[in-house]
């Protein structure tokens, strides 16, 4: 990795990202002004429910949106370069080599008609001038690295001959074959059962340390986030409600939605406590309210919540939240003027 200079730009910086989809029913604003920063070797967790824009944010970074999706505004800076202006050739070089992604469903994410070895080798060969034999060695080593026994035999097998957990390991091996700086994991364990889930998360952490890569983990599972993330971004309705360090988010949640999320998961310390679900249903992105996206489901909604989108306010310890409650209670801090 390059040596640190005095003022090195962060590894990845997303600034005011807007992504929308053109549909028959109109323009759907799936991501609406999302900003965050990812530092080298760190893990950023993006949490939110279905339709909150978390996966779309991830796909926007990779520019692998569906045909009708496009980034309409904002910047994605990789080591200071705005990749939203990259040509398709430059993006091909970025994908896999600078930033890789693994998906939710390992059952359908591998091509059924090619061997897993072929698919991992392909990831190596698109980015490096290597011979087939070298690529093969790399692929087999990657399979060993992700904890697949009997890698030579597995190399020659097709995806349908592997279990779900093993396929997700293959996905990880493939994603890491070109040694990317960033690994995006889009709900990497949602389709797996719980024991396999823990193994995959541990594997990701182990590889992160070995390869010193940054991870963006996208999930709706707060347990996964708690295990993995250094920093957390909580999304709702295409916007960020709250972001900060994992400790801050878990111990001092400052947005009503985050508080609700934390109340709705069981805790080992207090099994008798009743779980409180968040009432209502996720919002319809085609019909966004004028004010705070969450206010229809919020117990403490005020009049202003209906009228105006809350601004993102700094709280202590690098914690930001977009909730009018913080304004009313004056518990935000004055941020020093821009550097």
């Amino acid at each position: 990795m390059a040596e640190n200079t005095a003022k090195k730009p962060p590894l990845l910086q997303v600034v005011d990202l807007h992504t929308s989809f053109t549909t028959d029913k109109g323009e759907v604003q799936a991501v609406n002004g999302v900003s965050f920063t990812l530092e080298e070797g760190k893990t950023l967790g993006i949490v939110g429910e279905s339709g909150s824009g978390k996966s779309v944010t991830a796909y926007s970074i990779m520019q692998i949106l569906e045909q009708n999706g496009h980034i309409t505004q904002g910047q994605i800076l990789f080591q200071g370069n705005d990749i939203t202006h990259y040509s398709s050739k430059q993006m091909q070089d970025f994908r896999g080599k600078k930033c890789s992604i693994i998906f939710q469903d390992p059952m359908t994410s591998l091509n059924p008609v090619y061997t897993v070895g072929n698919q991992i080798m392909e990831a190596v060969l698109v980015h490096h001038e290597k011979s087939k034999a070298e690529a093969r060695d790399i692929a087999i080593n990657m399979l060993k690295l992700v904890g697949i026994n009997d890698a030579e035999r597995r190399f020659k097998q097709h995806p349908h001959e592997l279990s779900g957990g093993m396929r997700q390991r293959v996905m990880i091996a493939m994603a890491l074959a070109s040694e990317p700086w960033i690994l995006i994991a889009d709900e990497p364990t949602t389709a797996l059962d719980v024991t396999i889930q823990a193994q995959i998360l541990e594997l990701m952490q182990e590889l992160q340390q070995k390869l010193n890569m940054a991870i963006i983990i996208v999930t709706h599972d707060l347990g996964v986030i708690a295990q993995m993330a250094d920093e957390i971004v909580v999304m709702y309705g295409g916007r960020i409600c709250e972001r900060g360090t994992a400790d801050e988010i878990f111990y001092h949640p400052a947005h009503e939605y985050t508080k609700g999320l934390l109340r709705s998961i069981p805790s080992v310390d207090n099994m008798k406590e009743k779980l409180v679900p968040i009432a209502g249903t996720p919002i319809n992105l085609l019909n966004m309210p004028k004010g705070c996206a969450f206010c229809a489901r919020c117990d403490n909604a005020m009049k202003i919540c209906l009228e105006e989108v809350p601004p993102e306010l700094p709280l202590p310890d690098g914690h930001y939240a977009s909730c009018w409650m913080n304004v009313v209670n004056h518990n935000y801090v004055e941020e020093p003027a821009d550097e």
Partner: peptide
């Protein structure tokens, strides 16, 4: 989904179509 995977590896559009989709 595997088409999205292929694209995310940095495979060129032509190869995505003729290697991954066509077969």
């Amino acid at each position: 989904d595997y088409i999205r995977t292929a694209r995310s590896k940095g495979v060129s559009t032509v190869k995505v179509i003729f290697k991954h989709a066509l077969r």
